[in-house]
Design a protein around this nucleic acid. Sequence first.
DNA 1: CTGAAAGCGCTAACAT
DNA 2: ATGTTAGCGCTTTCAG
Lengths: 330, 330
Amino acid sequence: MNITIKDVAKELGVSYSSISRALNGKEGVSEETRQRIVAAAERMGYQPNELARGLVNRISNTVGVIIPDILNPYFGEIVNGIIEAAKQKGYNIFLCTSGWNGDTESEYLKILRQKRVDGIIIKPADYSRDMAYDTITTPMIIIDRQEDGEIHNKVGVDNEQGGYIATRHLLERGYRHPVFIIGQEDNYSSSQRLVGAERALKEFGLTLEKNRVAEGWFTIEGGRVAAARLFNSGIEIDSVFGINDLIALGVLQYCNENGLSVPEDVGVIGFDDISYAALPQIQLTTIHQPKHQLGRLLFETLYKEIKGFEGQEQTKIRLEPQLVIRKTTR
Amino acid sequence: MNITIKDVAKELGVSYSSISRALNGKEGVSEETRQRIVAAAERMGYQPNELARGLVNRISNTVGVIIPDILNPYFGEIVNGIIEAAKQKGYNIFLCTSGWNGDTESEYLKILRQKRVDGIIIKPADYSRDMAYDTITTPMIIIDRQEDGEIHNKVGVDNEQGGYIATRHLLERGYRHPVFIIGQEDNYSSSQRLVGAERALKEFGLTLEKNRVAEGWFTIEGGRVAAARLFNSGIEIDSVFGINDLIALGVLQYCNENGLSVPEDVGVIGFDDISYAALPQIQLTTIHQPKHQLGRLLFETLYKEIKGFEGQEQTKIRLEPQLVIRKTTR
DNA sequence: CTGAAAGCGCTAACAT
DNA sequence: ATGTTAGCGCTTTCAG
């Protein structure tokens, strides 16, 4: 089996608590024996069992990350930022994907706690469920949520403002008949962005009509299908706000396949600013989010909670979204 | 703190070994007490400590995954497949990204073993280092490697064949001056694909010249920069084989920015067939890999090794790549 | 069927 | 400075 602390103790004829002390840099061992121990451990290829250490120390140097979909570059970049920040603090991450499914999410939440992760970073799969998070005592931080009444930390972009900026841009460019494609209706980010959209519409004397909002999936295909539904519904459309870039990409695909020229016939705006949106062949106008930074911030905030820094107050960080005008709006 | 097996034992006035038996579905408890125990555990919100279980059982139901870059959709889809297959077997994954850095990779390899993962799935950061894997006794599987002389399992696509097909396609379409953009020179997949390219060239009476191969990074920007270098080097170029789709996307970007029309002035082919390659605005000709399936297979093969199925022989699985002709080659 | 006790590998008092 | 011991939470003999 694996070499344990006892093996190297026996080898050297010292007690194994000395080994522990030496290897963990604690005082109580002479410099000489410390060196002998370190050398022997190295030579024998000793690897401390983190399971055992975690059991006694009650820490695992591990955090769980639950996101809906790793293939969405938005989450990909966030995870990238999390991993980077985690590495600097000696943490590893359990990556879990919920597929926007609340049950899968709950399941992972349970497993993560059984694995005794030190903290959890989560993007809720749906809106309704997440008030139940308050019963979780593990340090936890929620991505992209700003609501009150919960105990956990929150870091995210200002979605309402983002939705406002996007819609306002459409309106300012002369589009008067925008439609909106969101994810599932109970998705928090979607609804917040819609609230912002409504505010912009109001400023231009317009209202948000129900039949101008379509639900889909947060994927390219989801956007394409929803666009088809909208354009075939008979309403007048001169622009579409895809609630994320993947959806907007699907809209672009629909337009392309159906001879609608962008940005003349229809203007398209997305949200997130994933890297593919900037390709010269795409040039999607969108709302930029600092995704990598968001990931780093997420971990760092969680880390502080884990280590018990800065008291018990809930911390909320709200990042500003930014309009990036490219070629899909006139 | 967290409630333990002892708490529920005390609550019920039974020994805690009975709790263990009941909760793990082992025999040796009457049906009646089992039900009482299950009910109490549920009521008290008992969550077994997997760290402790892992310590005694010597299993963690965890595997480590080390990939170079989660933002490359090629790896994204693989990871997706791994997570999906792992979930079915009750496994969680530690996601580690090496950033194509061998030292980072080694570091993670060490940590993973300390965390006592049951197995490791790895895409080596570079070529030279990976023979050192033979000293690792943890079940391990290597992505996309077919070489002999190692003890670990291997699952991947036939890169030589893929490189051959891609280059042959270019040649068959009348391109006679292809250049090649690879990742770092010591990358295994790159060199294998180049071997295939050479074979195709030979069939057309051509040879692979050193100055027609450029090194870059496996990113869009890497492809763009390498393309610029190549096109400015004064050699004749009528087509480029990007060793992965991200690089090919960068080449497309370079062409777009420099008024080179594709596929007339220059033909472009990639490798991987990431989803963005199929966008109507992109339509990249490429070599398809079954990435999701690859991920599933990776985990399932590893799982068998962990569970000690099918003896000790090294298993190698080689998937067939497939040419997908779109619009970037004439 | 059930309980007592040992031990997984390690850390942290407590002794010496 | 070093060794001894208890115990982290759990599983698994071994008795009863």
